[in-house]
């Protein structure tokens, strides 16, 4: 029997003020998908980090732009796609600095991508230059 897929989509103006709303949206979906409390917390943080990156870096806090968070889940996997049409970047070109290096340079950023990669089971980027950027993240649903 084919598995039923459930799909959701949230579009919000590109403002950090909306991060709380985005977190509420993904935690609700994570719980509905059957993730454990611990995995819901990981999902919440990873999506927050991804959207904060879009708002700050891809859109440069331009409120007229929109962040889209799509969610699809079946019995096995929850997939989240964070989509924007802002400045894209090559995630492989971002140097992952050690915490000690960041501290020595008095940096306040540089932790988000590492968190996303640590928290999610699969992460990949699809970037169409000048059109759109998509960050795809997956969390496997562990049956209790």
């Amino acid at each position: 029997m084919a598995m039923i897929e459930r799909k959701f989509s949230l579009h919000v103006p590109s403002s950090t003020e909306n991060l709380a709303l985005i977190r509420e949206y993904v935690t609700t979906i994570g719980a509905s998908a059957g993730l454990s409390d611990s995995d819901v917390a990981k999902l919440e943080l990873a999506v927050d980090e991804a959207c904060a990156n879009v708002i700050e870096h891809a859109y440069g806090h331009d409120l007229t732009k929109e962040v889209t968070v799509r969610a699809i889940f079946d019995e096995d996997t929850l997939s989240i796609i964070v989509e924007d049409t802002g400045r894209g970047f090559d995630p492989n070109s971002v140097k992952q600095e050690e915490l000690q290096e960041l501290i020595a340079k008095h940096k306040s950023g540089g932790l988000g991508l590492r968190l996303i990669q640590t928290l999610m089971d699969e992460v990949h980027y699809e970037i169409i230059p000048g059109q759109k950027n998509e960050l795809h993240m997956k969390k496997h649903i562990r049956k209790s």
Partner: peptide, 17 residues
Amino acid sequence: SYISSAGLGVFMSFIEE
């Protein structure tokens, strides 16, 4: 109740000073 890397970044950026 919640912290993201933006919050952790504040601790990180001031601690050396």
